[in-house]
């Protein structure tokens, strides 16, 4: 059984103005569909990556997975238990302590008024566990010094802070860590250090990662399986080799072509056309149809479902 199973997950945000403004301006409620009917599974001890541009809903899925946001529709099941439906408090508690999260901004994700020791130990202290020496041990595990436990976050660089975040995530001995753009605020050389650390810890502790990123190169390096999101919909899912060597969905193809290449000296490719549509009024049918070179009448009316195309799952009428 897969560790995480996400079924028909949908999240709708109400982004309407206050009712008085709506009344005066005679505007209807504005509903933003951030995530629309997304399903996938994450196997234990693997890295599942979600890629997509801004507004693709990748962070929203992460937040629903860890329970920070309730889904509007659909289910998140971890070991077959749906946190939103489960009533047994012990089960909820045990699942919750199995999930941790690492955030994008290493400056905002550590409380500036707390000492590093208390920050790292909090997940354990909150459940009344023993925390003696815990922070010191974890700090050394993530490549910092045990003496750093008494310091405050402002004394550390961005990369060191992200290590502290990782140490906090490890404190409750989780099985699954959701990593939301963990290195996009870091410099390249620091990113390499943090990614290596994450790989090492995964092997050492038998962790499973949901890795959320907009950076294709990082995803290619880290992931065992990749899901590509566009406007809240899963458009393609494949393993890295298949995805990068034979992208099947036109959006994936566009994304890969647009990503800057390190050996792309003076490369002249026609840049992608158009922009991501307004998620409040997404185009009917396939969300990518206004920018797609393959788009036909069918794409404007019928939303494609995921189907198997040569080892990948692709939501496109014409792929394959």
């Amino acid at each position: 059984m897969a560790l995480v199973s996400i079924r028909n997950l949908t999240r709708i945000f109400d982004v309407s103005k206050p009712w008085l403004n709506r009344l005066i301006e005679r505007k209807p409620k504005a509903l933003l569909t951030a995530v629309s009917d997304v399903s996938f599974e994450i196997e234990e001890r693997t890295v599942y990556a979600l890629v997509g541009e801004s507004g693709s809903g990748k962070s929203t899925i992460g937040k629903m997975l860890v329970g920070l946001l309730p889904p509007s529709e659909g289910h998140v099941e971890i070991r077959g238990i749906d946190l939103a439906q489960e009533t047994d408090a012990d089960k909820i508690e045990s699942i919750r302590s199995d999930i941790q999260m690492i955030f994008q901004d290493p400056y905002a994700s550590l409380n500036p008024r707390w000492r590093v020791r208390d920050i790292i130990a909090e997940p354990v202290a909150a459940r009344g566990g023993k925390t003696e020496g815990l922070a010191e041990r974890l700090l050394e595990q993530v490549g910092l010094s045990a003496r750093d436990a008494g310091k405050f976050p402002h004394e550390f660089s961005g990369g060191q802070r992200q290590r502290i975040c990782i140490a906090r995530a490890l404190a409750s001995e989780p099985k699954l860590i959701v990593c939301d753009e963990p290195t996009s605020a870091l410099d390249v050389s620091v990113q390499a250090q943090v990614l290596n650390l994450m790989s090492d810890l995964k092997d050492e502790f038998g962790l499973t990662y949901l890795f959320i990123s907009h950076d294709l190169t990082v995803v290619q390096h880290m992931a065992d399986r990749i899901g590509v999101l566009y406007l809240g919909r899963l458009v393609e899912e494949a393993d890295p080799d298949t995805l990068f060597d034979h992208p099947a969905h036109p959006y994936t193809q566009m994304l890969l072509a647009a990503a800057p290449k390190l050996d792309g000296f003076g490369r002249e490719v026609p840049p992608p056309q158009g922009e991501i549509p307004d998620p409040i009024n997404p185009p009917p049918g396939c969300a990518f149809n206004p920018r797609c070179p393959l788009a036909a009448e069918r794409c404007r009316t019928e939303r494609p479902t995921l189907r198997d195309v040569r080892g990948a799952r692709v939501a496109c009428h014409f792929a394959g």
């Binding site: 860890v66 409380n111 909090e122 997940p123």
Partner: peptide
């Protein structure tokens, strides 16, 4: 809306605990 508050909610800290221990000092 800062991520350290999300991190505290994630581990199941109650609302009053987050308000007093996390937000208040800041």
């Amino acid at each position: 809306n800062k991520e350290y508050v999300a991190a505290a909610r994630l581990i199941g800290r109650s609302g009053p605990a987050i308000m007093v221990r996390h937000i208040l000092p800041n």
